[in-house]
Write a protein that binds this DNA or RNA. Structure first.
Lengths: 106, 106
DNA sequence: CCAATACTTAAGCAGGTGCTTAACCATTCG
DNA sequence: CGAATGGTTAAGCACCTGCTTAAGTATTGG
């Protein structure tokens, strides 16, 4: 999941797809690589759940799966929240006794 | 940055650090690998900006850098927001004429 | 029907990643 | 001092990744 987003080309593809669905050809256009390479990236994105695609006729159309993006975002948000709440508790602890500190928020 | 989070061992380390600072030894404890391996992971995390560490005496203490986590979270949030706003606009467009659809939000 | 289009598969290869062991340095502690 | 502790460096190796080219397979459009 994070591994899927670890590659710059794949992030470009996700960025493109965030602006609307696209075919494999359209996805490949801004990238400087062969079509098979794009297919491989697409496969990784699909296996991670970030992207879905369906074939209609001879064109495959891809789109983002926002729920999957949500999962990654949540993981980060949780760790950051845990860290920040711990910082808050530490702040509270430091506020209670007067040692020699006075600056409370700066 | 996403590459740093792509590895499970490194995510474990970030998870551990979200619960408070830790030494290299403490970071290595729950992992089933040698200390040098942990050092290499730590290096990746530091280069990505996610973690900082300082050495005091013979122990190195590591802590999370929430601002860096924020950057990753933001990237995802932006793409998801773009995609969802596009979905909304599509919803508005589909609402105008009556084709044969009735469920608007399900 | 024939050729162009759009994708797909397979094989192969250069370079990167994640680990290991072995050896080493620096700081406590007895 | 000298051993234990905590970390660091270097080398090497198995495996994975991201590409490539070459050769398909379907689906249109003329």
């Amino acid at each position: 999941m994070f591994a899927a987003l670890a590659d710059g080309s794949r992030r470009s593809m996700v960025d493109r797809l965030s602006r609307g669905p696209a075919t494999v050809k359209q996805l490949a256009e801004p990238l400087v690589m062969s079509l098979p390479a794009v297919l491989q990236h697409l496969r990784v994105l699909e296996e991670s759940g970030l992207v879905r695609s369906a074939k209609s006729g001879r064109v495959r159309t891809c789109h983002l799966e926002p729920a999957a993006l949500n999962a990654a975002e949540q993981w980060i948000a949780d760790r950051r929240a845990e860290w920040l709440s711990r910082l808050d508790r530490l702040g509270d602890y430091l506020e209670t006794p007067e040692l020699d500190s006075e600056g409370d928020q700066s």
